[in-house]
């Protein structure tokens, strides 16, 4: 489905610092929000940051059509995201959105969402969307440590939440793929949605493949434009090099040459 893309200055109506490295921005659109699907992203313009030339892509974390707002979950990585972390309520942020494809609706109710680090960003929106379709997924979230575990209340409203931390300070110790739900002979889920670091998604994809479970992943590649013209963010697929920003960011693992 092709949705109309907008370029707009949205007003910051809320900044929530989740922990040292992550924060969320609530942004109010000056016009009625367009239809946005889970998995889609926005390209944010970082103004007055001389070393940041290009926009920065962020998954849409949640959408509230009644308040006409959307939220972005941002990890502070470099000068661009550090600059965005200084935004305050009342400031404006220019976005191109909504971009990219979306997660598909599952044909089953046995759904697992797996997110790691900043990769949890699109999963809250997805979980809320699944709820609207009477699906209450299991949500497995991986964090480095207890201090980074955040927004669990919001996820818990959508489904059963499981947690891993690298250091074992909360939930099960280890990576998401070390969680006990994956240590059984056969996993109980018929559909997995996953977003996180590359190595994590590949490990989850491997488990999905071994269990013959349908799996979609949301890829993150370095982008220049975000709407399909620069051809920089490509990933190899069964149809050759495809654009993560248009044919993705969501791909079914069947289409990716992952072993």
């Amino acid at each position: 489905m092709e949705l109309k893309k907008l370029v707009e200055d949205l007003r910051v109506t809320g900044v929530t610092r989740l922990n040292k490295r992550h924060f969320t921005l609530e942004l109010l659109s000056p016009v009625k929000l367009p239809l946005i699907l889970p998995g889609q992203f926005a390209q944010a313009l970082v103004e007055n940051s001389p070393s940041t030339f290009l926009r920065r892509p962020f998954s849409i974390h949640s959408v509230d059509y009644q308040k006409n707002t959307l939220r972005l979950l941002i990890q502070i990585k470099g000068p661009g995201t550090s600059h965005l972390a200084e935004l305050k309520a009342g400031d404006h942020l220019n976005l191109i959105y909504p971009l990219g494809n979306s997660f598909s609706l599952p044909f089953t109710k046995d759904v697992l969402l797996v997110g790691g680090g900043c990769g949890v960003a699109p999963l809250l929106f997805l979980a809320q969307f699944l709820n609207q379709n009477n699906i209450h997924p299991t949500i497995l979230l991986g964090f480095r440590t207890r201090e980074e575990v955040s927004e669990i209340d919001a996820y818990s409203r959508c489904g059963k939440v499981l947690i891993t931390t690298d250091d074992g300070t909360e939930g099960e110790k280890g990576l998401v793929v070390d969680h006990s739900i994956f240590q059984r002979e056969k996993i109980e889920f018929k559909k997995i949605y996953c977003c996180g670091p590359d190595a994590m998604m590949k490990a989850v994809a491997k488990i999905a493949r071994m269990n013959n479970t349908d799996c979609e992943v949301s890829l993150e590649n370095t982008m220049a434009c975000g709407f399909g013209v620069c051809l920089c963010c490509i990933t190899p697929t069964d149809k050759g090099n495809e654009r993560v920003c248009v044919e993705g960011p969501v791909f079914n693992i069947r289409r990716l040459p992952w072993k």
């Binding site: 001389p50 030339f53 620069c230 963010c233 490509i234």
Partner: peptide, 15 residues
């Protein structure tokens, strides 16, 4: 991939 690198006031590409 990677085909792009952001630089000071510009970008490199190798599409």
């Amino acid at each position: 991939y990677p085909r792009m690198a952001e630089t000071s006031s510009g970008m490199l590409n190798s599409v």
